[in-house]
Design a protein around this nucleic acid. Structure first.
Lengths: 168, 168
DNA sequence: ATAAAGTTTCAATAATTTTTGAAAGTTTAA
DNA sequence: TTAAACTTTCAAAAATTATTGAAACTTTAT
């Protein structure tokens, strides 16, 4: 396979994966493009390579910066802004984990904790079932949270070394 | 908080979480409803409690069965079909992991492996960067895949015991 | 065979999400 | 201060995704 075709295929696959996981397809594609670009790119170049509008490119780039996945770069003597992606895949994974934990897991944990305080009749099967399910989900979510917490602090080699060693 | 209010809040929160993770909101809500219901419910009851149409209920229930999260139940002497959810949260987590691995991770791994075979000029930074990124992502995805594989086979207590012990 | 009870399908509609593009805003250099 | 270069905003349009509802279909009992 040729490089140009491979790049397109990667961008498409990354975009699809993103959309399946609740990440805007264009955002995933812009990230993919920057991931495989040795040099920082301008908004113009991104617009052109992905055939997207200026507005879309601008918003998407802002979002990616908000996720901590890309950064602006200013080249000496140039007006234009350049964008480049952190190429360290472990940093990327941690950054995504960190943001989704904060934006999605934590709010749900908060609600689950509130829901744990519900009171009712211990003889009512509706009540008993509700409480049990909430308790179990809460416990699982807590374990996921703790694991992510560890992942955020860990070095890649240490993390996978430990996890995979346990599982051999 | 009262049970009725708590149930609504749980269904809403579960629906939101689902939609953030690429799962149809209604599907997550129906699942939530069945999770906290001690008895199996009919399509009618689900339609009514969630204010959704018959068609939507039917499709959603079919999807949930496809995901292995709920089952049909037939009560003796009754024509109606009843639906109930597996209440074991670890089974649920494994089932979701299993399906998403199959539907999303595996296709991406296949593409990444194809993309690893790309050939080009080792002096071309475009080529070198592409190859490196693909290789790194491939490795990470492989580790995720192996960990999920282990999770699918594991008992809950063993899995979290091992993972959290490593991280203490 | 018929009809009642229940289930499934799917084209049309609605809701949501994403994208556009042009206008407004900002920065820099002369 | 002006104007060119560039960036940002956001209302409107487009695209996508989810939902409805009525007709078709299936099953069961009589």
């Amino acid at each position: 396979m040729e490089l140009a075709a491979a790049k397109l295929k990667f961008i498409e696959a990354w975009g699809k994966l993103g959309s399946e996981w609740g990440i805007n397809r264009t955002m995933a594609q812009v990230h993919a493009l920057l991931l495989v670009s040795p040099e920082a790119l301008t908004t113009e170049e991104i617009m052109e390579q992905l055939s997207i509008s200026r507005g879309n490119a601008n918003m998407t780039l802002r979002d990616l910066i908000g996720w901590g996945l890309i950064e602006k770069q200013h080249k000496a003597g140039e007006r234009k802004e350049y964008f480049f992606a952190d190429k360290d895949v472990w940093n990327i994974a941690r950054q995504v984990a960190k943001e989704r934990k904060k934006r999605e897991l934590e709010p749900v944990l908060k609600i689950l904790n509130e829901l744990s305080t519900v009171n009712g009749d211990e003889k009512d099967p509706e009540f008993v079932t509700f409480k049990k399910s909430i308790k179990d989900i809460n416990k699982l979510a807590g374990n996921v949270d703790k694991t992510l917490e560890t992942m955020l602090k860990a070095e890649e080699s240490w993390f996978w070394g430990s996890v995979l060693k346990v599982f051999k």
